[in-house]
């Protein structure tokens, strides 16, 4: 079951997101998805799974606030087989589980890595979805290699201007539900301008999952990250 393939009698220390599995092979790229409640994180994860699952070996870890509902949604939608989905319970503190005390999430990721390696299907990418929280919630670098922050136009077009660690530092900012902009009176151009102001060169993608191109631009960004991750792993091997 476990990854103790070293045969030295010593279990390698894996307290942080070290880049290699205990057997020395490359571990999966870990991508965090955070953002406020209702911004469409779970829907984005589901859409990413549909876009990427034929090219990459994927798994998802959800962090629900008080249920396993997000994991249950992904299972119901059948975006991935059940052995590729795990739920972490967060004791009413979703930001703690992804930032201050990442141990349960690391356990969940490693259990998925182990189980899928044993099935001969080593993982390429693990998506870690945070429980819906506030604008300050970001992932620890000990947990993920890259993070996406998902906000939506209906949550207020002043969110990019307000900033906060998620908006300003995430590797990718996704502004979701652009199809709703006309109905809620959100100014997309203003949001783009404010985001640019807050984030400098860091990328921003506007997304609507109701229509084309859906999650494809974000999926392409994840693939780029994976390609870079693989290249780094080869270079350091």
């Amino acid at each position: 079951m476990h990854l103790d393939h070293s045969h030295t009698g010593h279990h390698p220390e894996r307290h942080s997101a070290s880049a290699a599995l205990p057997d020395g092979s490359r571990r999966a790229l870990r991508v965090g998805l955070g953002g406020p409640v209702g911004s469409g994180k779970t829907a984005t994860v589901a859409a990413l799974c549909r876009e990427l699952r034929d090219r990459l070996s994927l798994a998802v870890v959800t962090n629900d606030i008080y249920t396993q509902e997000d994991a249950a949604f992904l299972l119901r939608e059948a975006v991935l087989p059940p052995e590729r989905i795990a739920a972490v319970e967060t004791g009413a503190c979703p930001h703690t589980a992804i930032r201050d005390d990442i141990s349960a999430n690391l356990e969940a990721i490693e259990d998925l890595e182990t189980a899928l390696l044993a099935k001969g299907a080593p993982l390429d990418v693990v998506l870690v979805e945070s429980g819906g929280d506030n604008l300050t919630a970001t992932f620890s670098k000990g947990l993920v290699d890259a993070q996406i922050f998902v906000i939506d136009v209906a949550g207020g077009d002043d969110i990019p201007r307000k900033g906060g660690p998620g908006v300003t530092t995430a590797d990718l900012l996704v502004v979701n539900k652009t199809d709703l902009a006309p109905y809620v009176g959100s100014d997309l151009e203003g949001m783009a301008r404010d985001a640019k102001q807050q984030r400098g060169e860091l990328p921003v993608l506007f997304q609507s999952l109701r229509g084309e191109p859906g999650a494809r631009p974000v999926a392409a960004w994840v693939r780029e990250q994976f390609t870079a991750w693989t290249a780094r792993a080869v270079a350091t091997a």
Partner: peptide, 8 residues
């Protein structure tokens, strides 16, 4: 705050 999972 010792990061060993107790908070959950």
């Amino acid at each position: 705050r010792f990061p060993a999972g107790g908070h959950a």
